[in-house]
Amino acid sequence: MLDDRARMEAAKKEKVEQILAEFQLQEEDLKKVMRRMQKEMDRGLRLETHEEASVKMLPTYVRSTPEGSEVGDFLSLDLGGTNFRVMLVKVGEGEEGQWSVKTKHQMYSIPEDAMTGTAEMLFDYISECISDFLDKHQMKHKKLPLGFTFSFPVRHEDIDKGILLNWTKGFKASGAEGNNVVGLLRDAIKRRGDFEMDVVAMVNDTVATMISCYYEDHQCEVGMIVGTGCNACYMEEMQNVELVEGDEGRMCVNTEWGAFGDSGELDEFLLEYDRLVDESSANPGQQLYEKLIGGKYMGELVRLVLLRLVDENLLFHGEASEQLRTRGAFETRFVSQVESDTGDRKQIYNILSTLGLRPSTTDCDIVRRACESVSTRAAHMCSAGLAGVINRMRESRSEDVMRITVGVDGSVYKLHPSFKERFHASVRRLTPSCEITFIESEEGSGRGAALVSAVACKKACMLGQ
């Protein structure tokens, strides 16, 4: 009897593995994704193909990295998701002549009506938060230079001027797309009239992360975010950046690689679950690469896999709870928690219980395998993109072996128990001629924006502006 049951459990697990095998990517698959990513990057950089390229390769006008001589107080704003952060950054000489960066910050959550109302409502709310922060720190009387981390696709015309191309991540505030974001912020500050600010720089969160990590390690020339969304930036040779005049030196390019796949480059790798996630998203047909990796989508992918296993009578005796059938019910943090389970399955059992399920031991094991399959594919897909960037940098610099540091931020990278190990191992397999160091950014977005502002202020002083 026991043997029969054991055989049935083994057969069930084997069927589960057959279904989950769809998520496995072979090294040849990853090399294919990497080569296609490089081709799209090239198209994004070139003037004649930029418009139709899915990977936009947006110039950021960040050319210099901090040298350690900029000092002063800077205000930093960070808008990239449902939370908005205001930070005071003091850049100065530390002990023994070292450079020191001290920060104080406060988080504000953005109400739904500000995210989806008008641009005026959104930026009025942001300036209200700045006003509140300055009151708390008794700094209303000071006109501070301000660095703005704005983590949406922007076409820069200068370091302090950028046109919002399109909202992502659930934002829909009308009247912002096609307009200068810094102008919208300046107008809102003017409307309030109770404080003055000098907006000197606007950067993407990947750029802010790279600059913040450069402060720790001067070989950091790539910034990457794996959180709600997924994106990367890197220092490109100016001669390859056709959208900006000049051939000397390097400029940081914001790849906006989340949109890779929007022209069909990933079609052969998309599964039924991916198509369902895409169809029910706020932007169907867009940001397809990001939807395979980002935390906004990972939990939902797992939920759809679990429903398939229920329908195949391989999980929960073929019956799903009402909660499990509800879109968004299986949160991405559950994926991390399930994979963090120590082996007694308590954590998995508790999560499934909150979803109205009474799982068996085998159910718990199957749910864990589903989570591992989805998150491992995410790590491997992400590795193909980064390997594409790094191999490109090595080739354009004609280096036999390139040493490089990548600064990384984002909740999936930082909080998932195995993502970074799987990701690092896969990147290294795909970049055999590179020695890569990964560092995690601390308060990256805010500190990085302030350091970019410090560079901009120093330049302005040198130019006598």
Rank of each mutant, 00 (worst) to 15 (best):
Asp4Pro: 11
Arg5His: 05
Ala6Asn: 03
Ala11Lys: 14
Lys13Asn: 14
Lys15Val: 10
Gln18Ser: 07
Ile19Arg: 12
Leu20Asn: 12
Leu20Tyr: 03
Ala21Asp: 09
Arg36Glu: 11
Gln38Met: 06
Leu47Lys: 14
His50Ile: 03
Glu51Ile: 09
Lys56Val: 03
Lys56Gln: 14
Leu58Pro: 03
Val71Pro: 15
Asp73Met: 07
Leu75Tyr: 03
Gly81Phe: 12
Asn83Pro: 03
Val86Leu: 05
Trp99Met: 15
Val101Trp: 13
Thr103Leu: 04
Lys104Asn: 07
Met107Tyr: 05
Tyr108Lys: 00
Ile110Arg: 02
Ile110Tyr: 00
Asp113Met: 08
Gly117Glu: 04
Glu128Ile: 07
Ile130Phe: 06
Ser131Trp: 05
Asp135Ser: 07
Lys136Thr: 10
Gln138Lys: 08
Lys140Val: 04
Lys142Ile: 04
Lys142Val: 07
Thr149Gln: 06
Phe150Trp: 02
Phe150Met: 03
Pro153Ala: 05
Arg155Ser: 05
Glu157His: 13
Glu157Phe: 09
Glu157Gln: 04
Lys161Glu: 07
Ile163Lys: 02
Ala173Trp: 05
Asp187Trp: 00
Lys190Ala: 14
Lys190Pro: 05
Lys190Val: 11
Arg192Cys: 05
Asp205Val: 05
Ala208Gly: 06
Ser212Gly: 04
Tyr215Glu: 13
Glu216His: 14
Asp217Ala: 15
Thr228His: 03
Thr228Lys: 01
Thr228Cys: 01
Gln239Ser: 12
Leu243Gly: 05
Val244Ser: 02
Cys252Thr: 15
Trp257Asp: 01
Gly261Pro: 03
Asp267Trp: 10
Leu271Phe: 03
Arg275Ala: 14
Ser280Leu: 11
Tyr297Ala: 06
Gly299Met: 03
Gly299Val: 01
Leu301Gly: 10
Leu304Met: 08
Val305Glu: 06
Leu306Thr: 14
Leu306Trp: 05
Leu307Ile: 10
Arg308Asn: 10
Asp311Thr: 08
Asp311Asn: 08
Phe316Cys: 11
Ser321Asp: 09
Glu322Gly: 14
Gly328Asn: 15
Ala329Asn: 08
Phe330His: 04
Glu331Val: 13
Thr332Cys: 08
Thr332Gly: 07
Val335Ile: 13
Val335Asp: 09
Arg345Trp: 15
Lys346Glu: 11
Thr354Ala: 12
Thr354Leu: 12
Thr354Lys: 11
Leu355Glu: 05
Leu355Val: 09
Gly356Tyr: 06
Arg358Phe: 12
Thr362Ile: 07
Asp363Met: 11
Ile366Thr: 09
Arg369His: 10
Cys371Tyr: 05
Met381His: 07
Ser383Trp: 00
Ala384Arg: 02
Leu386Glu: 05
Ala387Pro: 01
Asp400Thr: 09
Thr405Cys: 15
Val406Tyr: 02
Gly407Lys: 02
Gly410Lys: 06
His416Pro: 05
Phe419Glu: 02
Ser426Pro: 05
Arg428Thr: 13
Ile436Pro: 08
Phe438Thr: 04
Glu442Cys: 15
Gly444His: 03
Val452Lys: 01
Val452Arg: 01
Val455His: 15
Cys461Gln: 08
